[in-house]
C-alpha cells in the first residue's frame, strides 16, 4: 500500500516538475547521483564515476569536461577525494556556476565531520588526506544530514521549485528513517565482529555497525597491498578469527583471495557504492545489500 502511495506521490511530483526548467546535476560519485535523483525529481543527473571505478584515480577526460560545462549544480564528496581530477575539469569547463565557492559547487565533506583526520607533513610520502576519510556515504546518519544539505542547496539555486524539493526530501526522509530502524536491528548482530579490510572504503559502515577492522591489506592508505604486508597479517588473522576479508568492486582483490586461501576466512567482494545500472541502484538498496552480506558471513 505504502509503495503504491509513494509511486503516486512520485508521479504527482513529476507533474509539478514539468512546468519548471529541469536542473542539470553533475555528481562526482554515483551515490550522490542516486540521492539527487530522489531529491530532485525530473532533474538531469549525471555521475562522473561508477561503482567499478576508483574515484581517487579518474582522468579529466574530454567527455567529463563537456558534462561539467553544462551543469547547474555539482555535488561531490570533497575531502580531497577528487583533488586529482575535479580541478582540471573545472579549469577546462570554465563554468562560472560550478567554480569553488559558487552556490552550484557543493562539497559535502564541509557539512559533516569526517573520521581519521590527519596532521600531514610536507615531506611525507604517505598518500593520506588531512581532511579525513571521504567515503562517508556509508554512514546512514551522515547520509541523512547530507540529504538535507543537498535539498537545501537545490532549494536555493532553483527557488521556483522549492516546494517540490522540500516535499521530495520529506518523503525520502520518512523512508530513510524507517529503513534505519531496520538496519540498526541488523547491525546489532554485527557488533564487535572483526573484519580485515583493503583501504578505508567501508570504515564508516564498520564504525556505524560497531564492527572492528583489525587489519588493512594496504600497507599505507592508498598504497596497494603487497604480498609482504599480507604475509605479516596472516598471524593476526589466524588469531583474531575475522568473519570476512572485505574488498570492493573496483579493487584488485589478489591479496584478499590469497589471504582467504591461507586462513580460510571468507572473502567478501562488496560494492563500495551504488550501481546505477544494476539492481543496487540507490543508497537504500546498498545498505540493505551490504548488511545482509555481512550478516551472512557470520
Amino acid at each position: 500500500m505504502l509503495r503504491i502511495a509513494s509511486k503516486l506521490f512520485a508521479l504527482s511530483l513529476l507533474a509539478l516538475v514539468n512546468t519548471a526548467q529541469a536542473l542539470t546535476i553533475f555528481t562526482c560519485e554515483p551515490e550522490w547521483a542516486a540521492l539527487s535523483e530522489e531529491l530532485a525529481p525530473g532533474a538531469k543527473v549525471f555521475s562522473a564515476t561508477h561503482v567499478y571505478q576508483d574515484p581517487h584515480y579518474i582522468e579529466a577526460r574530454p567527455s567529463l569536461i563537456s558534462k561539467l560545462a553544462k551543469a547547474d549544480l555539482v555535488i561531490c564528496s570533497g575531502a580531497g577525494l577528487e583533488s586529482g581530477w575535479l580541478p582540471a575539469l573545472q579549469k577546462r569547463a570554465a563554468n562560472r556556476k560550478v567554480i569553488d565557492g559558487a552556490d552550484g559547487m557543493l562539497y559535502l565533506s564541509q557539512y559533516i565531520k569526517t573520521i581519521d583526520q590527519h596532521e600531514t607533513e610536507f615531506f611525507s610520502t604517505k598518500h593520506v588526506h588531512p581532511e579525513g576519510n571521504p567515503h562517508f556515504h556509508l554512514d546512514p546518519d551522515r547520509v541523512l544530514k547530507l540529504a538535507l544539505v543537498i535539498s537545501q542547496r537545490l532549494q536555493r539555486i532553483d527557488s521556483d521549485s522549492q516546494q517540490l524539493y522540500q516535499q521530495a526530501f520529506e518523503q525520502w526522509q520518512k523512508h530513510w528513517q524507517k529503513s534505519m530502524e531496520q538496519w540498526q536491528q541488523q547491525a546489532m548482530t554485527l557488533i564487535g565482529q572483526p573484519v580485515v579490510v583493503q583501504h578505508t572504503s567501508f570504515s564508516y559502515l564498520i564504525k556505524w555497525a560497531g564492527m572492528d577492522a583489525i587489519a588493512d591489506l594496504e600497507p599505507e592508505p592508498g598504497v596497494p597491498p603487497t604480498m609482504a604486508h599480507a604475509q605479516s597479517l596472516i598471524d593476526d588473522a589466524r588469531q583474531e578469527q575475522p568473519v570476512a576479508i572485505i574488498t570492493n568492486w573496483y579493487q584488485n582483490d589478489r591479496a584478499a583471495r590469497w589471504m582467504s586461501d591461507k586462513t580460510g576466512v571468507k572473502h567478501l567482494n562488496l560494492p563500495a557504492t551504488v550501481d546505477l545500472k544494476g539492481d543496487i541502484n540507490n543508497l537504500q538498496r546498498l545498505f540493505d545489500y551490504l548488511l545482509i552480506q555481512l550478516q551472512e558471513v557470520q
Binding site: 562539497y107 564541509q110 610536507f122 544530514k145 544539505v149 520529506e170 526522509q173 528513517q177
Partner: peptide
C-alpha cells in the same frame, strides 16, 4: 523534532571554505 535536529546539526557543520590557501608543491 527530529527534522529540526537534523537541520540544526547540518547548519552547525556548514562552514564556508572561502579561505584560499597558498599551495606549494
Amino acid at each position: 523534532k527530529r527534522k529540526a535536529m537534523v537541520l540544526a546539526s547540518a547548519m552547525l557543520c556548514s562552514q564556508a571554505s572561502s579561505v584560499h590557501a597558498l599551495e606549494v608543491g
